[in-house]
Simulated assay, not measured.
Amino acid sequence: MILETLKKEIANYSGELVDIRRQLHSEPELSWEEYRTTEYVYDYLSKLGIECRKTEPTGVIGELTGAKPGKTVALRADMDALSVEELTENLPYRSKEQGKMHACGHDAHTAMLLIAAKALVAVKGQLSGTVRFLFQPAEEVATGAREMVKQGAMAGVDNVFGMHIWSQSPTGKVSCIPGPSFASADIFNIRFTGRGGHGAMPQACVDASVMASSFVMNVQSIVSRTIDPKQPAVVTVGKMTVGTRFNVIAENAVIEGTVRCFDPEVRDHIEKQLEVYAKNTAELYGGTAEVEYIRGTQAVINEQESAHLAQAVAAEAFGENVLYREEPTMGGEDFSFFLDEAPGCFALVGAGNPEKDTQWAHHHGRFNIDEEALSAGAELYAQYAYSYLNKNQTN
């Protein structure tokens, strides 16, 4: 199933792979600001002879057509960094941008896919079909994938594959389970309005802080009492802004939170119930409530055949012992919008190593990766594409 030439090519490029990742790490760019990274990727692919185009305002789509006819497989890497201050000192490739860093591993994803592209060019004559490379902006704000789809990223694609470096797992371990992998991730904003006044005269007021507090205390019963307990769901209130002064009864209160789940019907139900709870709570105390529900990412649901292919490729390339099962996470991933367009799967590649201090959680200021994982990720990209295309070749 795997091609030994790809393994050798990527091994030969291991030093370059580390260099690319470190350069990208030292020059992080936030969502929709990845102009320098876009230019770097575009120039790199162009020098390889890969036909490519830029998406607006950032992002790159490259396409490599094999010598034989066949299907089209897309490989995706995200490129954006986070508004996080890097806390690791004396790191040679530490972020040069204050308050910005690659705290989630997207620098690694971009580097791995560039080297995978370079290796696939070397075996172009043995490819049956087309490999499309998607270098996506703005994953961290969950809008980049959807915008790339609008700009034709998935037109004609038969299958799509992506991955994420995973610091919670040992270096080189690979998980790609069929079914749910990442949850849908939505945002809700609720504004309670009462009638303000003097803190010494509550009888003349409608206290928005009481409405908001009551809502926060009761909203968890949506999950605990209206949803099948076999269906995972999370409702989190992350922020509450209320009041202006110690002796003024609050006229307004604003609550912000997030909803995570895997099932579309559960998602719909929670959205409706949030409005019911908010408006009924407000009415109980004599006020009003306005609810805004913003749908973010879809749930990432790995298609069974694709996930099994990724497992088989990883096992053959690195040995059966690399496979493990990462339980579905309530984290969000906008790779889901690519899966809306074509079947595919999303893998996790372990990069955690306490001896190298790379076990920190994603989005932490000390986040880093064990660079031994880079070659495994690059090879998994390349071998998945080769295996999928040659498995589905046409004459």
Rank of each mutant, 00 (worst) to 15 (best):
S14Y: 00
N90S: 13
Q168N: 14
E265C: 01
V41G: 01
A385H: 05
A250W: 10
G352M: 01
D43Q: 15
L64Y: 05
D370C: 11
A310E: 08
Q311S: 09
I294Q: 13
K150W: 01
I255H: 12
Q359V: 05
G179E: 09
E86F: 00
P92R: 06
E333H: 02
F188E: 00
E371F: 08
A74K: 02
Y44I: 00
R146F: 13
E4R: 14
S387I: 03
Q98P: 15
A310Y: 04
H164W: 10
K272G: 02
S209D: 00
F335Q: 06
R195Y: 08
G144K: 01
Y386H: 12
S375T: 14
G125V: 01
E283C: 08
S336G: 15
A278Q: 08
Y44A: 01
S387E: 06
S181R: 13
I249L: 13
A282H: 07
V123C: 08
D357L: 02
H25I: 02
V131G: 05
G296K: 04
K124A: 12
I20N: 00
Q126I: 02
A282N: 04
G350L: 04
A77H: 05
V157G: 08
Q126G: 10
A233Q: 06
T236F: 12
S214H: 14
S169T: 09
Q151Y: 04
I2G: 05
S169C: 10
E320I: 01
R295N: 05
E251F: 04
N159Y: 12
F338S: 09
Q231V: 11
K356P: 00
V84N: 02
T288Q: 11
S181W: 02
T193L: 14
Y381R: 11
P180R: 07
Y93A: 05
A111W: 01
I249W: 09
P178W: 00
G194R: 02
Y324G: 13
A77N: 05
G172R: 00
H308Q: 15
T110P: 09
G199L: 03
T226Y: 10
T236P: 11
A312F: 02
A200H: 11
F337L: 08
N90Y: 13
G129C: 04
P232I: 01
T88L: 00
E271V: 12
K239Q: 15
E271M: 12
E290S: 12
M101H: 06
A314K: 12
A310F: 09
T193W: 06
K391L: 15
G286A: 09
T5V: 13
K272L: 11
K124D: 09
A373L: 05
Q359Y: 10
Y388S: 08
M240R: 10
P328S: 13
K150G: 03
I294T: 15
F133P: 04
Q136V: 03
F318G: 03
E51L: 12
Q151S: 04
V84W: 05
E292Y: 00
I2N: 06
D268L: 14
K68F: 13
T297E: 00
